[in-house]
């Protein structure tokens, strides 16, 4: 058939680069941010920017080279993190950040692969992938930003929404109990599990930098305010009000039993580093159990043939 296209506007690199805001480079963190991508899309009062800042600060403190870093994220508000960081970043499909990152981390052990995603992405649609990656102990740094709801789609109930909380799909209150993320990650086999809120920015930087030092599957949960999606229906006020709330109710309890750190609406939030253990990661086992034997077998077979 004949095709009549609408006129195409070719890509004009120069014009696009003129679009890059003049203020790029004004902030010291800008060297870690893709030129022309700030301002980001997140709402005023959203805690996601703080988590990105903490990640950058941890990279700076640990001298993690940008060239050796890759960030993989899924879908949703947190999924957009990848698009702002100036490194090799992958914005994948909903829930599939972890398997994508698994493929990347296994073939490139020289890279530090961080998975940045939200609670819905990692624990609802991607829940299966998370527990299996933790079980395998794939060398991934997972940062889960927990805002208790699906923010990007307008505040729907998530597996982390506390019981009785209101969201746009639980207008009379949530009838389901929520996941206790650190407990789940720990039970699945993560070697490092921590939880902080965006109010605990310094501790968060410390936790992320500790995770950089670990080999294996690390999990850092960051409780973040979502004034638009979660704060409004639950009358939690602005992002600032939620941050004040964290200041008042959070209790730092390092080494706490992860089974006892469940979050309930308007109640105490227990934060801290809960788990820090050593366990061989996937590639270590694969090399010692599989590759060594396979190559020994291949050699002995080769000898047999020659003889």
């Amino acid at each position: 058939m004949k095709v009549r296209y609408r006129a195409l506007h070719p890509f004009d690199k120069e014009a696009e680069e003129r679009h890059i805001q003049e203020d790029h480079g004004l902030h010291p963190y800008d060297e870690y941010l893709k030129p022309g991508r700030i301002p980001h899309i997140w709402c005023p009062g959203c805690g996601l920017g703080i988590v990105v800042t903490a990640f950058i600060e941890a990279m700076k403190q640990k001298n993690v080279p940008v060239a050796q870093s890759a960030v993989v994220s899924g879908i949703g508000c947190t999924g957009r993190v990848a698009g702002y960081l100036d490194m090799d970043t992958y914005h994948t499909t909903h829930g599939r950040a972890i398997p994508f990152a698994t493929g990347l981390a296994l073939v490139r052990q020289d890279l530090i692969v961080t998975v940045f995603s939200g609670d819905g992405d990692l624990f609802a649609i991607g829940g299966n992938h998370l527990i299996h990656a933790a079980r395998r102990n794939v060398n991934l740094k997972v940062i889960c930003v927990n805002n208790f709801n699906y923010g990007m789609t307008g505040g729907q109930v998530a597996p982390t929404t506390p019981i009785d909380a209101r969201t746009s799909t639980t207008p009379f209150g949530n009838a389901e109990p929520s996941f206790n993320l650190p407990h789940l990650a720990h039970a699945a086999g993560a070697v490092y599990v921590a939880r902080w809120t965006t109010y605990h920015a310094r501790q968060l930087v410390h936790s992320i930098s500790q995770a950089f030092d670990k080999k294996g599957f690390t999990f850092v949960e960051v409780v973040a305010p979502c004034p638009t999606g979660f704060g409004r229906p639950n009358k939690l006020g602005s992002g600032l009000d939620e941050m004040r709330h964290y200041r008042e109710v959070c209790e730092v309890r390092n080494g706490a039993d992860p089974s006892e750190v469940e979050i309930r609406l308007r109640e105490k939030i227990i934060v801290g580093t809960f788990v820090d253990v050593e366990r061989p990661d996937f590639m270590e086992h694969y090399q010692s159990l599989v590759v060594a034997r396979a190559q020994a077998k291949a050699k002995s077979k080769g000898k047999g043939k020659a003889a």
Binding site: H27, Y29, P39, G49, A201, R202
Partner: peptide, 13 residues
Amino acid sequence: GLCSLICPEFAIY
């Protein structure tokens, strides 16, 4: 440096 760490917008340092 807390302001630059806690600013979600990379607007202060």
